[in-house]
Design a protein around this nucleic acid. Structure first.
Lengths: 212, 212
DNA sequence: ACATCTTTTGAGAGTTACTGTCATTTGACG
DNA sequence: CGTCAAATGACAGTAACTCTCAAAAGATGT
């Protein structure tokens, strides 16, 4: 019935069995229904049962696809992209520079539909404390992965303190930039551009040192 | 029945009515019972009902004192101390330096009992994902408060981007330092000392810039 | 086209973290 | 000691999960 948006996300192989295709469909159906209900009536006000109903699946199925209600909003597949991109940076590039590039590239890759969805997600996360909390955690989980790659690239132990500090700082700053944008510009397109700029500025501050 | 530990925490006024004293007592009773059960059988494995039982209060009462189970582990009163201390720093001191001082002073003030409790808390937080998540959030909440004070001190708007970036970086780094220590040294006293040093090093990196 | 095997789904029962209400208890105070 | 306000406990209800098991549906070989 619908086939537009999945083209780029399903980039891997067009050779998918009916089973796999259906899985992707249900996943999207659940997410769409959820986003719609969340924006209409609010996150807390929409029980999972109603989402299931709207997506025309059983509650069990919803929980099979998303272990928690929060995951419906939070789960994404950017980690792998990020890690791969980081590995591709030249080895002599300073880590903060690499991180900056990789993050900015990621944001720029978002197509129109993805952008709009991203804004919905961000405002939801902004408003619901539970989502904020879990997002911070998933970011620091991503951070641990990034730190591993960085450590590997500079021949350090995976738990090297300095690497972790760098990543911690970058992510702390990133989150701040993200929320800063979500705060001001719920205003469509400009918001994303502003976000890129914010990230850029923040990273500059980090590599120059924080005098302020 | 018990009155030893509350001496320093109750520093404000010894003029407490029986009511207030009992409130403090129950609060401590609940927390102690919870910590004991958590370390004995694990956080997820101990329902609130059992905590209530062990603390000899009703489940309702537990929820009255701690809105969520997570709050039993996470709630503390350091924010006010931190903010007050930050306000007391000389105005010409660079913000990162102020933050460093204020944070280190806080850690140094901890007495023996408080230190041990702190370690229990940290390892719990480390192990339980839900606690990790909510801790990140409460830290960024604290961050917002710190940012306000810093902005005020340098005549900026409370949402000033640079201030938020600075605070974001400092807190990101702080969390990393905290977890780093909790990771390695569950080893009693040395852990806290190591923590102070970690914070110190991390802050140094921040103000010098992140070249690595 | 059919039989079989595997994966996905739905139904239902159970647990637990909360929320709200209301009657009872208990410290505060004149 | 009586009265008022605050703290407590008992209870009912909701919603997010978890587990189990049987039915439905896609994959696979003949």
């Amino acid at each position: 019935m619908r086939s537009m948006a999945s083209a780029r996300t399903t980039s891997a192989r067009p050779k998918l069995g009916l089973r796999e295709r259906k899985k992707i469909q249900t996943r999207q159906a659940i997410r769409r229904a959820a986003y719609r209900l969340f924006t209409e009536q609010g996150y807390d006000a929409t029980p999972v049962d109603r989402i299931a109903e709207a997506a025309d699946v059983s509650p069990s199925t919803v929980f099979r696809y998303f272990p928690t209600k929060e995951d419906i909003v939070l789960s994404d597949e950017y980690d792998d992209v990020l890690l791969a991109a980081l590995r591709d940076r030249p080895l002599d590039e300073p880590p903060v520079a690499s991180l900056r590039r990789v993050l900015l590239d990621l944001f720029r890759q978002f197509a129109g539909d993805e952008r709009r969805e991203m804004l919905v997600r961000l405002t939801l996360i902004r408003q619901v404390p539970g989502l904020r909390a879990r997002m911070s955690e998933s970011m620091s989980r991503t951070g641990a992965l990034l730190a591993e790659v960085l450590a590997e690239r500079s021949d350090r132990s995976p738990e090297d303190f300095e690497v972790r500090v760098v990543v911690g700082a970058v992510l702390g700053v990133l989150q701040e930039a993200l929320f800063h944008c979500a705060d001001q510009g719920a205003a469509e397109d400009s918001a994303l551009a502003a976000m890129e700029e914010s990230i850029d500025r923040a990273m500059d501050m980090l590599s120059r040192g924080l005098p302020l």
